[in-house]
Design a protein around this nucleic acid. Structure first.
Ligand SMILES: [Mn+2]
Ligand SMILES: [Mn+2]
Ligand SMILES: [Mn+2]
Ligand SMILES: [Mn+2]
Lengths: 232, 232
DNA sequence: TAATAAAGTTAGACTAATCTAACAAATAAA
DNA sequence: TTTATTTGTTAGATTAGTCTAACTTTATTA
């Protein structure tokens, strides 16, 4: 079944909402907001997607992706993240620039293209933001759970991904001298507002709670190779 | 000015018609045929493109690209040919597969992307079919003029480009053992129907007039580095 | 030159994706 | 348990791109 650019974006939005919020209770308003359209518009599209059996949905009920809808959404995400990786690794885009272009590239229709790209990049498992890349069967590594704000004072951790993908945050991270795979030591934490002093490459920085909550990390135990069920 | 996928294709079609036919007297019917739409549809679009000052066009008159329309069309062709080169050189697509995917990729909007791709490919001057790639100012090498059918019996030449880009012809060329930059010696030519015996890499093949007319070549003089005004 | 053919235009209709405004249902608050 | 608020739906309109069928203009040919 050949889907339009727009239909693909609705499916992707549905998957992303459940990814991010954990909830899989998505309503018309939330979906519409995430696509920056009006609820009436989303409602129309939902009828169409239901007709094509890509979503499960009853009037006034909650929306869920069907099995096939989910597979397609995962495929779009696979393409998005592979293209981001290509732009970052091969064309030397910075990590705050890749998303916008990948939003376009993810809709290019050619299985051969994406499989060859995957191979060319040597089957990467994570994109430049640390997000897992689904394989061609739609399977993907479990995403990280622990953030920098969960790390106790005195402990070390490793930055593995970014939660907020906005380019302003991504640029800010670089400015602080931080990046994927960096070791971070939590030096101190202000009790009143959780302002945290971290040490990265021997440089101290002070970051807000909001900042710390948007940096995914692996804890000290995980770094040393021990399994930790809290981290992933 | 941000153009739609469709508008871009109309501009590209206009440029391609003038490229290929030499004529720059394009009418509604010819344009429509080249885009596989009905004349009525092309007529509607022409009004819109005129409004945007991308084409010069009066009712019942001939169609011409404006300066800005031509620049945009050249830009699409630049993107198309750079993507073809990428698919061919980096992702190991065969030369008969690249066009279809490039038809989609040529509409991705990002100047940075195309400039970085250009650099990544080391500023190629020709695509996998030997067609010249416009630079970022829309300037391009003059295209080849002489075809294999122009070469005299006993003379040698070098294949430099393909006139007919259909995948069936491209596949056929490979089957004959021919490719860009191959030396071709014209062994004999049947007077009645111009069936030509050629020698490529010590192998003899017999090709039709239609075939020979669709292979661009440089003549013997040009191969030896002498300038020849007939060839380019 | 007049008839015929070819090329080009217009009118009216359709689909996909969007909107606004009005309405209905479900949920939360009083 | 009413009332108010939030959430979701419907109706009607709009724009881009396409079509068919009818018509007009230009070009060709007899
Ligand atoms: Mn992204
Ligand atoms: Mn990403
Ligand atoms: Mn091509
Ligand atoms: Mn080409």
């Amino acid at each position: 079944m050949l889907l339009s650019y727009t239909e693909e974006n609705y499916l992707k939005a549905l998957l992303k909402i459940t990814f991010n919020s954990g909830i899989n209770e998505v309503g018309t308003n939330k979906l519409a907001a995430s696509l920056v359209v009006k609820p009436a518009t989303a409602n129309d599209m939902l009828k169409k997607l239901k007709e094509k059996e890509l979503v499960k949905y009853e009037k006034y009920g909650k929306i869920k992706l069907s099995k096939s809808g989910q597979k397609i959404a995962l495929d779009i995400i696979r393409k998005h993240r592979l293209w981001e990786t290509f732009l970052y690794q091969k064309l030397e885009f910075s990590w705050d620039e890749v998303h916008e272009v990948a939003e376009q590239l993810e809709h290019i229709k050619s299985e051969k293209l994406i499989d060859k790209l995957d191979k060319y990049l040597n089957f990467p498992e994570f994109d430049p933001h640390g997000d897992p890349i689904p394989n061609r069967n739609g399977e993907l590594k479990v995403h990280y759970k622990k953030t920098l704000s969960d790390i106790a004072v005195g402990s070390s951790c490793k930055m593995v991904a970014v939660k907020d993908n906005s380019s302003s945050f991504l640029q800010y991270i670089i400015k602080v001298g931080l990046g994927i795979n960096n070791q971070i030591k939590v030096i101190s934490k202000q009790e009143y507002d959780s302002i945290t002093i971290i040490e990265v490459n021997d440089i101290l920085s002070s970051v807000s709670l909001k900042f710390a909550e948007n940096i995914y990390v692996l804890c000290g135990d995980c770094i040393e190779g021990k399994k930790c069920f809290e981290c992933q």
